Computed example of a mutant assay.
Amino acid sequence: MRYLLLSLADENTPAPDERLFAEMGAFIQEMSAKGILLATGGLEPGGLRMTSSGEEVTVTDGPFTEAKEVAVGFALVEVRSEDEVLELARRFRRIVGDGVSEIRRVQ
């Protein structure tokens, strides 16, 4: 089963420090060595939003002021169960501290 893990941030989220980079690097290396981690990366907070209505397609530049949180990072993982992805997400949250993550199974 593949899952997309999203890390969300808001204006109160602290900037990463050297400790975070070191711990996250070790975590990423471990998941890569086990073949669990398929892709990971940071996401630019602004981005683009595309909406469609009938034949009309509109593109809007971010950041989006109405958004309270934005996705700032992701990991695509392949695991055997939902329990396994929940444990990975718990380990991630312990490394990065307070905040919100979303977990979505890839269909």
Rank of each mutant, 00 (worst) to 15 (best):
D10W: 03
V57D: 08
R91W: 13
V59K: 03
I103A: 01
G42A: 11
R19S: 11
A26Q: 04
M50S: 11
I36G: 07
T51Y: 02
P14M: 06
T13Y: 03
A26T: 00
S52L: 15
L86E: 07
V70E: 10
E78D: 10
M50K: 04
T60D: 01
D10F: 00
A15Y: 10
F27C: 06
D98N: 10
G73A: 15
V85K: 05
P16G: 08
A89T: 08
L4F: 10
L5F: 10
A89C: 05
F27N: 03
V59I: 07
V100Q: 03
N12I: 01
D61W: 02
A67H: 09
R2S: 04
G41Y: 11
K68C: 02
P16T: 09
L76H: 08
A75Y: 02
D98C: 04
F92Q: 11
G41E: 09
E11L: 04
T65Y: 12
E56R: 14
R104L: 01
V77K: 04
L8V: 07
K68P: 05
F27I: 08
R91H: 15
A89Y: 03
A89K: 04
A9Q: 15
G47P: 10
S32V: 02
L20Y: 07
T51C: 02
E23V: 05
R49I: 06
G47E: 12
R80F: 09
I36K: 05
I95S: 09
F64I: 13
R90I: 06
V96P: 01
N12S: 02
E87R: 15
D98Y: 06
P45Q: 12
R105L: 07
R105H: 10
R94D: 09
K34W: 12
R19D: 15
E30W: 04
E56P: 10
F27P: 01
L5K: 11
E66L: 04
G41L: 12
V96I: 03
E78A: 00
E87K: 14
P63R: 12
L4G: 05
E78C: 06
S101C: 09
D61S: 03
G54R: 12
A39W: 02
L37Y: 09
Q107C: 01
P45S: 04
T51L: 05
L8K: 08
R91S: 14
G73T: 14
S7G: 10
A67L: 11
R90H: 12
K68Q: 15
R91Y: 13
F74K: 09
E56Q: 13
G47T: 11
G35W: 08
T13D: 01
V100K: 08
P45D: 06
V100E: 02
A26Y: 03
E84P: 13
D83Q: 13
I36L: 12
I95F: 13
G42C: 13
V57S: 00
